[in-house]
Design a protein around this nucleic acid. Structure first.
Lengths: 217, 217
DNA sequence: TAAAAATGTTATCAAGTTGTAAAAACAAAA
DNA sequence: TTTTGTTTTTACAACTTGATAACATTTTTA
């Protein structure tokens, strides 16, 4: 039904969660610390992550920032209100306070999947083809080497095509909500994409706002 | 800012919720039983309902079924797990277990509003078409180049169509509340829009006041 | 009616924005 | 460590914008 990653360091709880998810038909994978989680998610696609906040290595928030894009339910300690609020304001899809009832976990997982499960896997227009899973970009049939930042930016632009995105919004979506850098950084990366992928006509400048990817030129 | 209906029979709690929502800028209305809630929601539109489950008259679930369509956050007793699950499976947007922290209520309200509050995405009348997402304006099918100020002004006029807006109000909405400049600046931009987009008939001058965009000419 | 007030219209240029290349800073690999 | 590749910052040229002034026209008022 859905590919779910369970990031939880307590082995018994991790197993309990997976058993219940599997009972209702989901494919589950277990990891037990933050670094493992980030590594795996860079290799494979998941429909949903159940992400404990208190983890060895990177904590849940750090993992969330690095893997942006995958729908996430945080698992928090019951009494940690600020964590719960922080999770939601960072853009998590939901959270569950431990200890939780399995029935509730399943209901929330289903709710989040219903909301989020229709991701785009690839995009093609004219001479450009993008595979979001393998993170490969083809221009006129040729595989182009894109740097991570270039790809992330292109992905955000394409998935929000025909929408004018401000530099601030792009910094949020590509660099992370807590990144504080020069908005000119965005401009420089835009120029790289335009040049490398012949996107001069497709990536439009929206004066005083930012940029917009146009599907139909 | 959103119109929120608070359905909660305990007067003190109802008031507490409303006070906090108002503090962050929402418009609140209170009702104290299920029948009242259904009646009011058939007359008026709300952006969100905070709906207690244990209510005199109709209970929260019955109210929810009768008014389907308005985004809803259920308020449940902490220990009533089955109610929480039932709410979510019925299609509620979220629930909160009582007693809850106000900070968390506000975070959840914001999250639900973000998900559900769909802005006007486009506007069309006669030869004019405006796409607010891409910030593109079409006149007789042709893409017209609008400057940022022109677009912002047009957007405000159209989203407040059939309402006379004073120059001061327009300066507030388009230039920002802290802008101190000549109100004649508004006039100049109005002329540009009229000329560029053939809006001589649609953007009416309201003498001694300001301007009004008329949807039906 | 004529004077006064409000609005229409046009041109201008300083201030601000973006394109671009190159340098600097940073990170990963050898 | 050095090398290599990536990202950010800097610097400046090129470009866009929009507030204002100045004058024309229209509307109100006395």
């Amino acid at each position: 039904m859905a590919e779910i990653l369970v990031v939880e360091d307590e082995i018994a709880i991790n197993e309990l969660i997976r058993r219940n998810l599997q009972l209702v038909g989901h494919q589950c994978t277990a990891v037990f610390d933050g670094n493992e989680a980030v590594d795996l998610m860079q290799q494979r696609h998941f429909d949903l992550v159940l992400l404990d906040i208190m983890l060895p290595g990177l904590d849940g928030f750090e993992v969330f920032q690095q893997i942006r894009g995958t729908p996430t339910i945080f698992l928090t300690a019951r009494n940690s209100l600020s964590d719960r609020v922080k999770g939601l304001t960072m853009g998590a899809d939901d959270y569950l306070a431990k200890p939780f009832e399995m029935l509730e976990l399943l209901a929330r997982v289903d709710a989040v999947l219903r909301r989020t499960q229709k991701e785009e896997k690839a995009f093609t227009c004219e001479h450009l083809h993008i595979d979001f899973n393998s993170r490969q970009v083809f221009y006129q049939g040729e595989l182009m080497g894109c740097t991570p930042k270039e790809f992330d930016l292109l992905e955000v632009l394409v998935k929000n095509r025909n929408i004018a995105l401000s530099r601030e919004k792009l910094l949020d979506l590509v660099w992370g909500y807590d990144y504080f850098g020069d908005t000119r950084t965005v401009d420089v990366h835009i120029q790289k994409l335009r040049k490398k992928l012949g996107l001069e006509e497709r990536i439009k400048t929206v004066y005083k706002i930012g940029y917009r990817f146009e599907a139909q030129p």
